[in-house]
């Protein structure tokens, strides 16, 4: 429905060594790969998977925050939250369009999300029981997303790189907005501060998991680095995030739920950095594999919206067809 002109329009080149070498030379020369350029099928598939997951994450990510729109405690916070959730939807739309340039339709991607075939960021399978979670998500989740996404502005695939420039600007605004929200809770009553600390306790470790499995276990990293789809490894980005975030928590009087967290002068080639405790990878894999608290609810909510909205989409198509007939008859 959305990209019929593109689907199947790409003829796949023969992937002999000469072709792969020529492609790698373009990557090494920092040339951008554009939709109509020849590319190895594995490069195309990696990007479809990555951009699709990213788009799905934005869409599913609307749900945990959307949970608080009707209960936001002030009108100022309510409009900020509405605008933020709307931005996430906009990123989804933008990213689906970027994926469509690789020959996959939005409908197809949506079906993969609803069937459970396609993944989205596991962080959104955690619940948002309190208002503080709205601030913490902006601060930590959008903060971690920025760490991941800023390097993607230089990704070798042109449409994704360009989409990420705008997305990163907005995410950066969300991150500051989230931090400001948590900061104002910390400056409020004891109840408000406790709400902020409780929220940080719940989101800290899942945020660290957002960077993916450790480099030793990551399935996709090596080839993606070579193709300059990714620029840093999972562990490098995770370390950057910890180093940036710990001082922010200290500044507003919150403590990280990690007894092993401590400054280490030796880290980052002598520039210093934080050592941190062991991440519970069993929990990570449990949630990734569909058994987090909200996995089933998230997909159920998206399915409900999609299925209950089918008659609306059908009506729009039927009306368009009628109009076409009427124009032809006139």
């Amino acid at each position: 429905m959305y990209s019929q002109g593109l689907i199947g329009a790409d003829s796949q080149p023969v992937e002999d060594q000469a072709f792969l070498d020529a492609f790698q030379r373009r990557i090494d020369a920092e040339e951008k790969i554009e939709p109509n350029d020849p590319m190895p099928m594995a490069y195309r598939n990696t990007l479809v998977r990555m951009i699709g997951q990213h788009a799905h994450s934005e869409i599913v990510g609307m749900l945990p925050e959307g949970n608080w729109i009707t209960r936001a405690p002030s009108l100022r916070r309510k409009v900020a939250l509405l605008a933020k959730v709307q931005d996430e939807g906009g990123h989804g739309l933008y990213l689906y369009s970027a994926a469509e340039t690789l020959g996959v339709s939005r409908e197809q991607m949506t079906e993969e999300l609803l069937s459970g075939e396609a993944k989205y960021s596991s962080i959104f399978n955690y619940p948002t029981p309190t208002w503080a979670d709205i601030g913490t998500i902006g601060w930590l989740v959008d903060g971690a997303a920025i760490m991941n996404q800023v390097p993607l502005c230089r990704c070798s695939y042109g449409p994704y790189a360009r989409a990420m420039i705008r997305v990163c600007k907005e995410e950066s605004f969300h991150q500051r907005q989230g931090y400001e929200l948590v900061k104002s809770l910390c400056e409020g009553s004891a109840d408000q501060k406790a709400m902020a600390q409780d929220s940080l306790n719940r989101w800290w470790w899942p945020s660290l998991m957002m960077f993916g499995p450790p480099d030793t276990d990551s399935q996709h990293s090596d080839q993606s680095m070579k193709w300059k789809i990714k620029r840093f490894t999972n562990d490098e980005l995770r370390q950057k995030f910890v180093d940036a975030t710990v001082p922010q928590a200290e500044l507003i009087g919150l403590s990280m739920p990690d007894p092993d967290l401590k400054w280490n002068e030796e880290k980052n080639n002598g520039q210093g950095g934080y050592d941190f405790g062991e991440i519970d990878w069993d929990e990570f894999w449990r949630v990734v594999n569909g058994h987090g608290m909200m996995n089933k609810d998230r997909i159920a909510a998206r399915k409900k919206a999609w299925e209950e909205g089918a008659w609306v989409r059908d009506a729009a198509k039927a009306y368009a067809a009628k109009q076409k007939q009427r124009t032809a008859a006139a």
Partner: peptide, 29 residues
Amino acid sequence: VSEWCGHAPMLEEDLSMPNMALDLIGQAR
């Protein structure tokens, strides 16, 4: 209108519903 955010029949309406809610709540403010 804001109750639709994230639950609309299509992504375009997931954007236009909060858009209208923002207009209305902005005017209310």
